[in-house]
Write a protein that binds this DNA or RNA. Structure first.
Lengths: 137, 137
DNA sequence: CTATTAATCTATCGGATTAGTAGATTTATG
DNA sequence: CATAAATCTACTAATCCGATAGATTAATAG
């Protein structure tokens, strides 16, 4: 299951992307409209800024704004930042690979094979959907 | 990511299913062969017993054995017991549905729609693979 | 130059979950 | 009765999650 951090992050980005004008959006505005704890949302937006999805402006007229085209931001890339691995096991993760301590032979592990299949099916959706796709309903 | 509990549970069941004879398998034997903490494995096997996948026999010659045909046990059903929801959000879970507190209108939520798609892709794999499929490599 | 606005930084915090451990008890076999 | 094996009860340490409080820095308007 996705953490609230991830869910809130995706909703906040969708909220920002939905605004056609490029003027900065207030944390408070997003928090209120999406029913997210304001302070919690602060840390999430900061993360998205530090990882290159958002930029911000301080002071009056400030806020957060996108620095990429929503069509270029895959949901897979967002989930990897917000949540971490998309795969069900570390040993089948493309971006967060880790060997299973208990597994002597990965190639012979039937669980490994299964989880690769699950991963590929999930990625097939998440790599081909973008933030732009979340902006209509 | 799946918890170790889930991973160990699936590996233990696979281990038991691989044995052609129906004689009970010792916890210790599974623990040693699959590199699982013995005490932790105890609780996992007990859970699988209480949920109708395994039966056990106490005392000498005892152990755990399957009470269903491995071909009849879908991996989805096992993961639901061991891990919980398969869906990425409670609001798209078939077996563990919960309304999102922050979401006023589920039908209008674009995240909701996306996660249904991910769920269906995952289930398509997990509902169609069985414990039997894990017994070859 | 000052007041205001808004993001940023630092520091906690309670509660839940995870992955285990310890030890006593019950049940079955020979 | 001795032994083997699952079962039950009860902890624990470490980590993470979601959230909060308060001080600080940066930008703008007047």
């Amino acid at each position: 299951m996705l953490s609230k951090k991830t869910k809130y992050g995706l909703k906040a980005l969708t909220y920002i992307a939905k605004k056609e004008d490029k003027s900065p959006v207030l944390i408070s505005e997003i928090a209120e409209n999406e029913n997210i704890s304001r302070k919690f949302l602060e840390t999430i937006l900061l993360l998205l800024k530090n990882t290159g999805f958002l930029a911000s402006k301080m002071g009056k007229g400030g806020g957060y704004y996108l620095i990429k085209d929503p069509k270029e931001i895959t949901l897979a890339s967002l989930i990897r930042i917000l949540e971490g691995p998309i795969a069900m096991l570390p040993c089948v993760s493309l971006n967060f690979y880790e060997k299973c301590a208990d597994c002597p032979d990965e190639a012979a592990c039937s669980l490994h094979k299964l989880m690769i299949e699950v991963r590929d099916n999930t990625l097939n959706v998440l790599e081909n959907k973008t933030l732009h796709d979340l902006t209509f309903d």
